[in-house]
């Protein structure tokens, strides 16, 4: 019984450390995705030794081709590696916690401030800024991912399709995934 008790405490202490590590990552990184890589590296590799550099890069590359937010996927992978399903759940919860609190407090404040003319002007400016950031993101994404004629064709085809008819984002992703799958089976059949 005494042994089980101390093991329980050790496990709890481990969960506590996982919670603190990922809470910190969620609290101190801005921008998500690759912007979070340096803090992941510092906290998980250098400080805690939970994972290796190669594992972190693996998690990132898989996180990019699995559904959901990349940083959350990396947290789930790392938590699972440290202590299974419960580790995965704790790491995921911890990385989300700061966002939940900060965003809801901020949203509440902004909702009451939006009638103020200064705030209205500031947000009119911010909207333009965000659109510029989104368009720039598309250019970066295209430079990084559109290499082959197949990919160029896919980009242009989807763009024309979306201008012509309204399609949900879900339908577009399903269509593209299916096309990739068919291409795979065709090349294998050859």
């Amino acid at each position: 019984m005494a042994e089980r008790g101390s093991m329980g405490r050790a496990a709890l202490a481990e969960y506590g450390r996982i919670l603190v590590s990922f809470f910190k990552i969620g609290l101190f990184t801005f921008g998500g995705g690759y912007a979070m890589l340096p803090l992941f590296r510092q906290e998980l590799i250098e400080k805690r030794g939970y994972i290796s550099e190669n594992e972190l890069l693996d998690y990132y590359s898989i996180g990019q081709c699995t559904p959901g937010v990349i940083a959350v996927n990396v947290a789930t992978f790392t938590g699972y590696k440290i202590s299974g399903v419960s580790g995965a759940c704790i790491a995921t919860l911890a990385i989300n916690l700061p966002s939940l609190v900060i965003i809801m407090v901020l949203a509440g404040i902004l909702n009451t401030l939006s009638a103020n003319p200064w705030v209205a002007h500031a947000f009119a400016g911010i909207r333009i800024g965000v659109i510029a950031l989104i368009l720039n993101e598309v250019i970066l994404l295209l430079k990084k991912t559109v290499g082959t004629n197949f990919q160029r064709g896919m980009f242009i085809f989807i763009l024309i399709l979306l201008f012509a008819v309204h399609l949900s984002a879900v339908a577009v992703v399903l269509f593209a995934a299916l096309t990739g799958g068919i291409k795979y089976w065709k090349e294998r059949a050859r």
Binding site: C65, L142, F150, M154, F155, G180
Partner: peptide, 11 residues
């Protein structure tokens, strides 16, 4: 699948 999904997502 990813080579096909990425450009579609960009669009």
């Amino acid at each position: 699948i990813m080579t096909a999904v990425r450009p579609a997502v960009a669009a």
